[in-house]
């Protein structure tokens, strides 16, 4: 029930943003920023409350990770909007946040006791790093979609071309932001697995798909820097990377229930 209040809060924030974005008076922009700030603060409070109730770091099951993922996406979206002033980034991040929260409503919010192997400080670094990366890639995916939609337009003026170039730059800037955190996530996971399971890498479905995701983004950056990957191909590859992210996060657990990461 409390989660639905949060969803309404974000929806209101998005409506206020859309209604006031063309307003010239600074008071409207101030209202928009305040509503968003309050939504983010409430969301953070929600996560903290969950942690207090569970008496642990709230990042151990799908419900909790989705909450954090939604918060990070909203936070990153608003930060990147402040930096690049692209309306689509803010709209997309708010829509993704709302969708994730709606999806979370249907999941069990029961607090389960923690497995002994999950009681490790590596869990915090591993999962937090992953979700910083995932939030960046989600924004990258949004910008890629905007790019792909806009690039269909035939009569492009010089300003429009420049705008597309800018979008393209932002896609890679956002991937640049997330990629090192994805690396940290995989690395910490490997170290934790070595401490907990005695092996750095077990070729488990989740691990293999995390590697596939890493390879797609590494390939994307490599091609960008060495072969000047541009235009639609760049956007498609970035979007493909995020599809791999979603599959690693949700799809693997559904298709491979026997994975050793089944608790995540």
């Amino acid at each position: 029930m409390r989660l639905s209040y949060l969803i309404i809060f974000y929806a209101v924030s998005l409506c206020v943003f859309l209604a006031t974005r063309r307003a010239e008076r600074s008071v409207f922009r101030w209202i928009d920023k305040t509503v968003l700030f309050l939504a983010l603060l409430t969301h953070l409070g929600f996560i903290v409350l969950r942690g207090v109730e569970a008496r642990r770091f709230p990042l151990t099951d799908t419900y909790e990770t989705l909450l954090v993922f939604a918060w990070m996406t909203a936070l990153m979206g608003s930060m990147l909007f402040c930096r690049y002033k692209i309306v689509g980034i803010r709209v997309f991040s708010d829509l993704v946040t709302i969708s994730i929260l709606i999806f979370s409503v249907f999941l069990s919010a029961d607090i389960q006791p923690l497995m002994p192997s999950l009681r490790s400080s590596w869990l915090i670094i591993h999962v937090v790093a992953y979700f910083i990366a995932y939030a960046s890639f989600a924004i990258g995916f949004g910008v890629s979609l905007i790019f792909l939609v806009l690039s269909i337009r035939k009569n492009k003026g010089k300003d429009f071309e420049e705008f597309l170039d800018r979008l393209e730059g932002i896609i890679f800037r956002v991937i640049d932001l997330g990629f090192p955190f994805l690396t940290v996530g995989i690395t910490c996971g490997a170290i934790w697995a070595s401490i907990s399971w005695g092996r750095f890498w077990s070729w488990d479905a989740k691990e293999v798909w995390a590697l596939v995701t890493w390879l797609i983004y590494a390939g994307c950056l490599h091609l960008r820097h060495t072969r000047e990957l541009t235009g639609r191909y760049a956007a498609i590859l970035a979007a493909l990377g995020f599809i791999a992210v979603i599959f690693t996060y949700i799809g693997v657990n559904l298709l491979f229930p026997a994975t050793i990461h089944s608790y995540s």
Binding site: D176, L177, F179, P180, T183, T187, I191, S194, G198, L221
Partner: peptide
């Protein structure tokens, strides 16, 4: 377990993280 490459793996992981931050930041 007895893994003779344990410390080499740690070195590889450190290089991987350092390299990714250096190249992206």
């Amino acid at each position: 377990t007895k893994n003779p490459a344990e410390y080499i793996t740690y070195l590889g992981l450190i290089l991987l993280v350092a390299g990714s931050f250096l190249s992206c930041y």
